[in-house]
Amino acid sequence: MLIGSITFAQSKNTKATTEVDGVCEMCKARIEKACLNTKGVKYAKWDVKTHQLSLIFDERKTNLKTVEENILAAGHDVKETKATDEAYAKVHHCCKYRDEDVKNDHTEE
């Protein structure tokens, strides 16, 4: 019994990091919002420069996969998984992170 309860005790503040593609502060807002709109996510911080997304969520309510799906739905690629073309099309034209020209526009900032 005891072993069972320890095994299944899920953390209220589970941490995870993943990589999300994007280029600017607007992307940051969109990515973080997509995460925080997932019920159970308490904290989301995406770094424009490193593309690192740090998450803290309540494991009893959600999991990393659900969050990642929501980010993909918002139009941002998560690691090797590409967002659908429909989702990517919704991203503001200045945030088209797959476009080399857009990337170059943001490099000096």
Partner: peptide, 10 residues
């Protein structure tokens, strides 16, 4: 080459 792991910097 991308190297990533949960709890570490990518």
């Amino acid at each position: 080459l991308v190297i990533s792991y949960v709890g570490f910097k990518t």
